[in-house]
Design a protein around this nucleic acid. Sequence first.
DNA 1: TTAACTTTGACTAATATTGACTATTATTAT
DNA 2: ATAATAATAGTCAATATTAGTCAAAGTTAA
Lengths: 156, 156
Amino acid sequence: MQGQNISDIIEAYLKQILNESTRVEIRRSEVAELFNCVPSQINYVINTRFTIQRGYLVQSKRGGGGYIRIEKVKLLDDRDMLDTLIGLVGHQISQRDTLAIVQKLYEDNAIERRDANLILAATSHQTLALNDRQLEAELRARILTSLLNHLRYERE
Amino acid sequence: MQGQNISDIIEAYLKQILNESTRVEIRRSEVAELFNCVPSQINYVINTRFTIQRGYLVQSKRGGGGYIRIEKVKLLDDRDMLDTLIGLVGHQISQRDTLAIVQKLYEDNAIERRDANLILAATSHQTLALNDRQLEAELRARILTSLLNHLRYERE
DNA sequence: TTAACTTTGACTAATATTGACTATTATTAT
DNA sequence: ATAATAATAGTCAATATTAGTCAAAGTTAA
């Protein structure tokens, strides 16, 4: 809220635009120049202030005509539960525990049967097929966390 | 979506024509002149935006009266659509091609928006977060293949 | 004083643009 | 017919134009 540092100022600038339209599209270097900072500071602001937990979706493209686009999305009611579950997942998780979490989501009507099956298919031992047990559990955790994060908000 | 670079503009131009007829036939040099770019840029646009993964067939002929013809095809009409796609995936696939395939599935009503987003989340570079580029592409292929196979019996 | 947060910049990655050179097909001249 | 020439499109690598990552250094607040 305060305008004490550049990151806060840039954050306020972007949010002010987002007050009027649901999305803002910028050229990173232009905004950096506008606020007299290095381009990577824009990434810092986005990574710390425009996260999915706060209801922002960010997309970007490099190369000529590149951009960074920030979109405000509507968060769903289940997000506290999702936070809890993401905490449970941690940085690694077994297939067995994954099944438990997915079943819980299904029972709570957070996802449909179809989604549940997709998630289980994507995270199964057979699919991941890594030799390294540890790596597999970590990867499963990342995939599951990412999927849970996507359940947070509603698409138009 | 973007109108920032020439490639996007040319893409939009061609797709607008394809909205009205199922195929478009151009003379490369004419389109290049129309958009004030070098002829090989047309090839770049076609190679990056009108791939088979996205549901486009491209044919061309050189010499006098030469042309480039782009045709929009429906994968759903293909009896073995899933097999075709799985073949395209192969044993490794980039995030870019994954996006193309998933978008095509969505366009052709093979999957819903929600499923599309889940699949993309599960296979993104950020989610997989492996150091090994090769391993990442292989893993992405396995996950995508697994999901595609899932559509097979999830379907009816 | 220390832990968290911010700022910076060197290096990396992705995407787009350009043009020289090559390949193919059609047309014309012999 | 055949060879030369013209009229196309294709390939590829160099360069340009963006954004991303990461860790070191600086700043602030508890």
